[in-house]
Design a protein around this nucleic acid. Structure first.
Length: 232
DNA sequence: ATCCCGGTGA
DNA sequence: TCACCTGGAT
C-alpha cells in the first residue's frame, strides 16, 4: 500500500504530467502579486483582473500611488473585484505597512525570515493565512505551501484528509510529505487551481481527471476516494 | 440563483 | 461557529 508521502508525490507528478508548467501566480511584479492575493479573496480571478487593469490604467501599481490616491477613487478602481470598500482598506493598510517599514520595497520585505514575516503579515487586518502564504510563496519566494478551498477539496477527495480539515493541519501534512523546491511549491498550488477548475469542481467533473485511479478512468463520477484512510 | 483561489467580528 | 461583506459570470 502506498505511503502518504508517495501519494502526495504521485498527485504532484500526475498533475504536472497532465498540465505541464502553470507558471503560477499571475502577475508581473511582487507588488502586483501581493495586490492580487488580497483582491482575490472569495472572488473569481476574472474580476480581480479587471480591478488590476483599472489600477494599471491609473498608473497606481505602487504602494505610494495607492496610498496617495483618494480612497473613493481607489474604491472605484477596485469595484469589479467585489467587497470594494473592504478591499480598498486592506490594500491600503498593506501599502502603508510596506512604506513605513520597508520603504515600499517588496524586496526588503522578503528579506525577513519566513516565520517572522508570516506572523507580521497575519497581524495586518485583512491578511489571513491563505493571503499571507500567497504573498510569502509567490511574491517573496519563501518555501511555504498555500492551502485553499481547492486544496482541501482535492486532497480530501483523494482520501488523504477529512474535507473539514483546518488550514494549518493540512499545510503541515503536505509540507511534511512533500520534498520540493520553492518552484515546486509554486507549481503544485498552480496545478491544484487548474485541476479544481477543470475537474475537481464543487460538483465533480471527473471525466479525464489526471487524479482518477486507473479503474475509474473514463467515469464521469465518482472521483477516487479513500485511497489512504486518514486517522486524524 | 449560485458561485468565485477569504477574513473579520462576535 | 456563523453572518456579513461585494460585483460579475454562468
Amino acid at each position: 500500500m502506498e505511503t502518504r508521502k508517495e501519494t502526495v508525490k504521485n498527485i504532484y507528478k500526475a498533475l504536472k504530467r497532465h498540465f505541464g508548467l502553470t507558471h503560477w501566480w499571475p502577475g508581473d511584479t511582487p507588488f502586483e502579486i501581493a495586490l492580487g492575493a488580497i483582491l482575490t479573496q472569495n472572488t473569481a480571478w476574472a474580476n480581480v483582473e479587471k480591478a488590476l487593469d483599472n489600477v494599471k490604467a491609473k498608473d497606481w501599481l505602487s504602494p505610494e500611488a495607492l496610498t496617495e490616491a483618494a480612497s473613493e477613487e481607489v474604491e472605484e478602481a477596485l469595484r469589479p473585484s467585489g467587497y470594494f470598500r473592504q478591499k480598498t482598506e486592506r490594500v491600503r493598510l498593506f501599502c502603508s505597512h510596506l512604506l513605513t517599514h520597508y520603504q515600499g520595497s517588496m524586496k526588503k520585505l522578503g528579506e525577513r525570515p519566513l516565520k517572522e514575516l508570516r506572523e507580521e503579515l497575519l497581524s495586518l487586518k485583512g491578511i489571513g493565512p491563505e493571503t499571507a502564504d500567497d504573498i510569502l510563496l509567490y511574491a517573496c519566494h519563501k518555501k511555504i505551501f498555500v492551502v485553499d478551498a481547492y486544496t482541501k477539496r482535492i486532497f480530501s477527495r483523494c482520501g488523504l484528509v477529512s474535507e473539514k480539515i483546518a488550514y494549518h493541519p493540512l499545510q503541515a501534512l503536505i509540507e511534511k510529505n512533500f520534498a520540493g523546491t520553492v518552484k515546486d511549491y509554486q507549481e503544485f498550488h498552480g496545478l491544484i487551481v487548474w485541476t479544481a477548475k477543470d475537474f475537481c469542481r464543487k460538483t465533480p467533473a471527473c471525466r479525464g481527471c489526471p487524479l482518477a485511479l486507473p479503474e475509474q478512468r473514463g467515469q464521469a463520477f465518482p472521483c477516487r476516494r479513500s485511497a489512504i484512510p486518514w486517522d486524524g
